Amino acid sequence: MTTIAPAPTSTDVETRGFAVSSLVLGIVSFVAGFTFVVPVAGLVLGILALRRERSARTMAVWGVVLNAVMLAGAVVGTLAFLVFGLLLLPFAPLAFI
Score class of each variant (00 low, 15 high):
T2Q: 07
I4N: 07
A5K: 12
P8H: 09
P8V: 03
P8E: 07
P8Q: 00
P8W: 01
T9N: 14
T9S: 15
T11P: 00
T11E: 13
D12Y: 11
T15W: 01
T15L: 07
R16G: 15
G17E: 05
G17I: 09
G17P: 00
F18C: 05
A19Y: 06
V20R: 08
S21K: 02
S22T: 09
S22R: 06
V24E: 03
V24M: 08
V24R: 03
G26P: 09
I27F: 12
I27Q: 01
V28K: 01
V28T: 09
V28L: 14
S29I: 00
F30E: 04
F30T: 15
V31Q: 08
G33Y: 08
T35I: 00
V37D: 09
V38L: 13
P39F: 02
A41I: 13
V44A: 12
G46E: 06
G46R: 07
I47R: 03
L48T: 09
L48S: 04
L48F: 13
L50D: 08
L50G: 09
R51E: 06
R52F: 11
E53R: 05
E53K: 01
R54N: 14
R54C: 02
S55T: 10
S55W: 06
A56N: 15
M59W: 15
M59H: 12
A60R: 08
V61A: 09
W62M: 15
W62R: 01
G63S: 11
G63F: 06
G63Q: 10
V64Y: 05
V65G: 06
L66K: 05
A68R: 03
V69A: 14
G73C: 02
G73K: 05
A74G: 11
A74K: 00
V75A: 13
V75Y: 03
V76P: 00
V76H: 09
T78K: 00
L79Y: 13
L79S: 10
A80V: 10
A80P: 02
A80F: 15
V83D: 06
V83W: 05
F84P: 00
F84N: 12
G85P: 03
G85F: 00
L86D: 05
L86A: 06
L89Y: 14
A92T: 14
A92K: 12
P93G: 07
P93M: 05
A95V: 10
F96L: 07
F96P: 01
I97D: 08
